[in-house]
Design a protein around this nucleic acid. Structure first.
Lengths: 225, 225, 225, 225
DNA sequence: AATGAATGAGTCTTCATTCAT
DNA sequence: GATGAATGAAGACTCATTCAT
C-alpha cells in the first residue's frame, strides 16, 4: 500500500523483533507472578505494544508460554556442549572450570528463569516437561556424567555412583537459579546464594575433594545403598 | 440414623477437623496447580464440603494459603532440632544420620510440598517468604552449620567455608523436594531423584569425604574465596 | 417436656417478647442500611438471638419487613385520631396544638423511621405502599383536611384549596422524619431540622397566618391554578 | 454495511456517550430498586452494553453510584442560581416565580431522583452526604434565605425566622420529588402531589400570605421560639 | 499491521435459608 | 425452642479473546 523502497527497513526491523520482545516480557512476568496470575495485557504493555498485537504473534496465552520456554532455552542449550570440546588437562580441573563458567553464565542469563518457570508450570502443561527433559536435563546430565566417568576411568576419581554425583554437582546450581527468582527476588538474600561464582568454586572444591582417588568412603557406612 | 451414644460429639468432631482437612486439600491443589490456578471451590470439593463452608473457616483464598504454610510447617519444623539432641559419636556420622533420617522424613511428608509452594508464591505474597526464612531456612542452616563447625573445631573436618558447605549439603535435598512435586509428579522420573534415602546417603558420603581433614583443596585453586 | 408450673413464666415472657425485639432490631437496621443491604444475621444478633431463631418467628426476610411496617405503625396510627376528639376553641389553635404534639411525638418515636422505610422499599414491595396509604396517609390527610375545612366553614380561614394546604402543612413534617434518619443520622445536621418542636411551631405560625381570613391571595397571581 | 463517510467517528461517538448512558441507566435503577438491590449487570443491560463494559468505565459499582450523583446534579445545580440573577419587582413575586419555574424543572428532570438516592444511600456512603450538603442543600438554602431576608429588609415581609421559613418553603418541594420516585412511581397517586406546578403555586401563595407584613402571628403563641 | 472497545465465561465471595443437634 | 454449621444460588468483578476501525 505504501512505497516498498525505504519504509520496510525500520518497520520490518521492529516487526521482526516483536516476537522476541513479547517473549522476553512474558518470561519476566510469568516467572515473577506465575502463568495464571499474569494477564496477557501486562505482557503486551511490558513489550510496549497493545493487547491485540500480542494475539497477532501468538494464538493464545498458552502458546506464548510454550514459545517462551522453547525460545529462551535454545540460546543457552548448546553453550555447555561447546565448553566440553575444549577438553584438556586433568578432569577435575576441567569439571571445575566447566561448571564455573557455564553456570555463572546461566545464572546471569534469562535461562535461569526458565528453571523456575518449568518447575512452576509443568503440572499444568506437561508438554513443557517433556521438552525440558529431552533438551536440557538429559543432555546436561550426560555431559557432566561423561566427565565424571572419564575421571573414574583415568583413575583420577575414586569409583562412585556417577548419576548420584552428577546430581550432587548440579542440583545446588539449579537451586541457586530458583532461589534467584523466588526468595532473592523478594529481597530475602542470603549472601552465598547470590554470589554464584564464589559458591560454585567452593562447591566444586568440596565435591572434587570428595571424588579424590585413594580415599575410601568418608563415613563409617558403605557408600552403596 | 446413627447411634445416639456418640452423637453429641459427631458435629463437633467434624467442625474441629474441618480446618485441617481444608488445609490438606488446599496444600495438595496449590502445589499441583499453583495458587492462582486453583479454584476455591476445588479446594472445598476435595475436602468434601461445599464452597461456602471454606469461607466459614478462612476469610479468603489468600488467608487459606498463609494458613496452609504456617500449619504444614509447624509439624516438621521442630523435628530437625530434636534430632540434634542425640549428638554422640563422630560429627561426620552424626551429620550423615541426621540428614538421612530428617530428609527422608521431610521428603515423604507434606512438608516437602511447602518448598515448592513457597518458591512459587513468594513473589506474589512476600509475607510468606519472611515466615519461611525465619522459621525454616535460618534454623535449619544454623543447625547444620553448627555441626559442620564442630567438626572443624574437633579436627575431624578440614577448614572450609561453613556457610558454603551447608548449602552444598542442603540445596540438593531441597531440590529433591521441588522435583518430587514438579517433574516427578508428572511422570518424568529420574531414578536417583525419587529414591531420596539412597541419594542422601551417597550425597553425604561424597560431601563428608570432601570434608575429610588432612586433605587439601582438590582443585588447583585455593578453597577460600 | 419440663414442669409447666413455674418455668413458663420467665421463658414465656422472653418468648412473647422475641417477635417485638426482632422487629425493633429489624426496623433499626432496615432504616439504617436498607432492606437489601441488611443481613438477616445482623438482625438476629442485634436482637440477641441466633440466626436460626429469627426463622422461628418469621418465615423469611421479606415477611419480617412487612411485619416491621405493620407492627410499628399500629402503635402510632390511632394517636392522631384521639387528639382530634378533644376539639375545642378556635380551629387555628387546635390545628397548631395537634400538629405540635402529634408530630413531636411521631418524630421521637420509632414511627418516624417508617417513613423512610416505606419510601425506600415501596418500589420493591408495593404491598407496603398499599398498607401505608390506607392506614397512614389517608386517615392523616382526612384528619387535617377536616380541620382545615372546618376553619373555612366557620369563617376563621379564607377559602383555599384544602388538599393543597394539607400538604403544605404535613409534607415538611414528614420530611423532617426522613431527614432524621438519613442526613442527620450521618452527622450532617441542620439546626432547624433537628429541633422539631421549634420548627413545627414556627411552621404552623406561618401557615396559619397564611390562612387568616380577610386576606386575599398574597402574590399578584390568582391562587387557583 | 454502513456508509463509510461518517464511520470514523462512530466508534468514538459511542465511547464518548457510554459513561452518560451508563449513568442514566444506573440512576434509574438505583432509584427504583436501591443501590444494593440493583445488579450491575442490570445497569449494563439497560444501557445496552455487557457487564464487562460497565467496568471499563467505572472501577466499581460504588464508584458508579458516586458518579451518578456528581454527574446528575452538575446539570441542575447552577440553574437555580441563574434564576436569581433576574431579580426585579417585589420579592414575593420573585420568590413565587423562582420556586415555580425552578422546582417544576427539577421535578421533571432526572435531578428529582437524586433526592431519593441521597436519602436512601447516605448512611451507607456518607461521602455522598457531604457532597450533597455542600453542593445542593447549602447553596439552595442560602439562595432562598437571601430572598426572604431581602423581603424582610424592604418591609415587604414581616419579621420571621428566616431559616425556618426557608424550610417551610422548600421541604414540601423536596418531598414532592421523593414522592414521585417512591409512592407515585408505584401507582399510588395523590393528585396534588403529582401536579407540581399547581401545588407550588398554591403552596407559595399560602406561604407568601403568611409572610405578609402588617400581620402578627396567627396563633395565640408568639412567632419566635 | 496495530489498536483498544467490547464481550461473556469464569472466579471469588456473600448470605438467605435449612436442619441436625 | 434455640443454635450455628452447612449449603448453594446469586452477584461483583476479571480477563482471555475477538473484531471493527
Amino acid at each position: 500500500m505504501s512505497a516498498p523502497s525505504s519504509a520496510p527497513t525500520l518497520r520490518q526491523r521492529r516487526k521482526d523483533a516483536r516476537p522476541t520482545e513479547l517473549i522476553d516480557a512474558a518470561l519476566a512476568l510469568f516467572v515473577e507472578k506465575g502463568f495464571a496470575a499474569t494477564r496477557s495485557e501486562e505482557v503486551a504493555a511490558r513489550a510496549g505494544v497493545s493487547k491485540g498485537t500480542l494475539y497477532l504473534y501468538f494464538p493464545s496465552k498458552e502458546e506464548l508460554l510454550k514459545a517462551v520456554i522453547r525460545h529462551t532455552l535454545m540460546a543457552d542449550i548448546a553453550r555447555g556442549a561447546e565448553r566440553l570440546a575444549q577438553e584438556s588437562g586433568p578432569t577435575g580441573q576441567l569439571l571445575a572450570e566447566l561448571m564455573t563458567e557455564w553456570w555463572v553464565t546461566v545464572y546471569e542469563s534469562p535461562s535461569s528463569a526458565i528453571f523456575k518457570l518449568v518447575m512452576t508450570e509443568v503440572r499444568n502443561f506437561p508438554e513443557i516437561g517433556e521438552f525440558y527433559l529431552h533438551e536440557v536435563v538429559e543432555p546436561g546430565h550426560v555431559l557432566i556424567g561423561t566427565l565424571v566417568q572419564r575421571g573414574i576411568d583415568r583413575g583420577e576419581f575414586r569409583p562412585v555412583d556417577v548419576d548420584s554425583v552428577v546430581h550432587s554437582i548440579v542440583l545446588p546450581m539449579v537451586m541457586l537459579c530458583l532461589h534467584k527468582h523466588s526468595m532473592a527476588a523478594c529481597g530475602f538474600i542470603e549472601p552465598h546464594l547470590t554470589q554464584p561464582a564464589q559458591f560454585v568454586r567452593q562447591h566444586m572444591d568440596l565435591i572434587l575433594n570428595g571424588l579424590r582417588a585413594g580415599a575410601g568412603g568418608a563415613s563409617s557406612e558403605a557408600p552403596a545403598a
